[in-house]
Every structure is written in C-alpha cells, then in structure tokens.
Amino acid sequence: MITYRLLHPEILAGLAAAGHGAQVLIADALYPHSTGVPAPAARVHLNLRPGLVAARDVLEVVADTVHIEAAVYMADADGGESEPVREYRGLLGSHRHGGDQEVAWSGLERTDFYAACRRPDVCMLVATGETRPYANLLLRIGVP
C-alpha cells in the first residue's frame, strides 16, 4: 500500500510520465475540460460536485510530489490575479525547484491561456470542482 500523500493512480501515472518541461493543468469547474488540452493529454476528473475537490488541494499535493519550475495563471477580467491565484502563489512560495530557485510566475489573458493549454507539451489536465472564477493554473514540471 502506498503511504505517500498522493494516492490517486491516474495523477501518479501522469506525473511519473511527465518529464522536465512537461506541463500539467489544474483546471477549475468552468474550464472546457474536453477541448481545452491536446487530444493525447490525460484527463483526470476530480470534479465530484461544486467546490469538491478544490484546486488548491490538488496543487498542494502535486507540489509536494514534483518540482514545479513555473506557473502560469489565467488573469482575471482586469488582467490581474484572482483570489485563488493569490492563494496558489502563497502555497508555492514555500516550494522550490532546483534548490534555491523560486517558482517563475506569469499570467495570460483568457484566450491566450486557452492557447497555451492546447500546446503539445501539456500532458495532463486535472479537472476540479473549483467554482471560483479564474482559478486555472498551468504548471511546468522542473528538476530537483
């Protein structure tokens, strides 16, 4: 029996198959899950009901499992960071990849974010029940 924090078989398999530079999308409940990533990307559905499973919970466990090199968020309607993104930034602030380097952050407006998520290096989408708007986060896997 696995005794690690991450137990979900599909997420474990997706992260194990992702190499340096691969990208993982943690998507909110409003994201177009069926068309918003390349066809070969794994899709893991954790969107049981509104609010469950929360995107922050997924991020916390993923960040504990792999090194995150960069995070790209969907900018809100004003071009800034939403409440969920500020939470993610706080959570990832304590995580480092490659020793002392901080996670690199950037934001994209909605249509540019969708385009970035459809790139061929996006290997997995984790659909959450997160209902707060602009709660999508695209993570680039790094190396220790």
Results as ranks from 00 to 15, higher is better:
Tyr134Asn: 12
Leu15Met: 05
Ala135Phe: 00
Val122Asp: 00
Leu15Val: 06
Gly142Pro: 06
Arg56Cys: 05
Cys123Ser: 15
Arg140Thr: 15
Ala13Val: 06
Arg49Phe: 11
Pro38Gln: 07
His97Arg: 09
Gly107Trp: 06
Ala70Leu: 04
His33Thr: 10
Val122Lys: 01
Ala27Arg: 01
Glu83Ile: 10
Ile26Met: 02
Gly129Glu: 05
Thr111Tyr: 12
His67Ile: 01
Glu130Gly: 04
Leu15Asn: 04
Tyr88Gly: 06
Ala135Cys: 08
Pro40Ser: 08
Pro133Ser: 09
Gly51Leu: 07
His95Lys: 15
Leu138Asp: 05
Glu10Asn: 09
Thr35Met: 03
Arg119Thr: 14
Gly93Lys: 08
Ile26Phe: 01
Arg56Phe: 10
Asn136Leu: 01
Gly19Pro: 06
Ala22Trp: 00
Val62Ile: 15
Ala70Met: 04
Ala18Asn: 04
Ala75Tyr: 06
Leu30Cys: 11
Met74Arg: 05
Val62Trp: 00
Ile11Leu: 12
Gln101Ile: 11
Val66Leu: 11
Ala75Asp: 13
Val126Phe: 02
Gln23Thr: 09
Leu139Ile: 05
Gly14Pro: 02
Asp57Glu: 14
Leu59His: 03
Glu109Ile: 11
Ala13Gly: 08
Ser106Pro: 00
Glu60Lys: 13
Ser82Ile: 04
Arg49Ile: 12
Gln101Met: 13
Ile141Thr: 08
Asp64Met: 12
Val37Pro: 00
Arg49Cys: 14
Asp57Gln: 13
Gly36Gln: 03
Leu137Glu: 03
Ala127Tyr: 03
Val44Gln: 05
Ala22Leu: 00
Val72Trp: 10
Leu139Trp: 00
Ala18Thr: 03
Gly99Leu: 11
Met74Leu: 01
Arg89Thr: 10
Val143Glu: 15
Gly107Asn: 02
Gly98Gln: 12
Asp100Gly: 15
Arg43Leu: 09
Ala104Tyr: 01
Leu125Met: 08
Gly79Ser: 02
Leu12Thr: 05
Leu92His: 08
Ala54His: 11
Asn47Leu: 07
Ala116Tyr: 04
Asp78Met: 09
Arg56Ala: 13
Leu91Trp: 03
Gly21Asn: 05
Gly80Asp: 00
Asp100Glu: 14
Ile68His: 02
Leu92Thr: 04
Glu102Trp: 08
Ala55Glu: 02
Glu109Lys: 12
Val122Asn: 01
Ala42Trp: 09
Ser106Thr: 12
Ala18Ile: 00
Leu48Gly: 12
